[in-house]
Amino acid sequence: MRQAALIFKKEFKDYFASPIAYIVIAIFLALTGWLFFSAFFIFDQADLRRFFNLMPLLLALVVPLITMRLFSEERNVGSYELLLTLPVTFRDIIVGKYLAAVAFVAAMLLPTLSYPIFISFIGDLDWGVAIAGYIGAVLLGAAYAAIGIFASSLTRNQIIACITAMVVCVVLSIMDQMLFFFPQSVLDVVGYVSANAHFANIAKGIVDSRDLIYFLSVVFLGLYATHLVMEEK
């Protein structure tokens, strides 16, 4: 695990070495800030519900931008060969890279803490719900990052990796709003697979083990699939 920690550190630092990281963070903050605050005073409610409602779709679009380079870039440049011939295991590499992406998502969410702080000055904010919302957002980001890292392991083309991950994440985000199109018999399954529904539960302030298990399973599946791809190639 010492190796994984070293890889984590390097990958995390790499994010901030390129301007893309700052652009992604800036876009994310601008979008959340604008979408949230443009109607905040109209609704006149001191909560973050509408902020967290944005999360599934917004993260589905932003997280793939963060994860796309993890494997694709190394494959493309050829540094993958150097990495794999160092004394590190596949697990070290996956865990290090994955945690770096999750840490980056967390870093991206960090500035938005100013919203609840700001709201708590002008109204009566329920901090419990806000914290649950942030836990949910990080879990959601972690699940999407696992999908993203898997997509990145499949191809040496970053654009393809990004779009593949985006499609999967967006589908998971909007699935439960399209239940209308599914036959009655599969509704339960579709409802369970939808990331949005699980996130909504947590964002309401209910941190249920079922929802936790859902997110952790997505993470595990994504990382395990990445491991299989690495073994295959």
Binding site: L6, I7, S79, E81, L82, L86
Partner: peptide, 23 residues
Amino acid sequence: PESAPLYKSMIVYEYLDYVARIR
């Protein structure tokens, strides 16, 4: 490997330091 595919964005010292730690 052929044509030394190193991490382009890193500084030489930083890179060698990273490899040393991994080793």
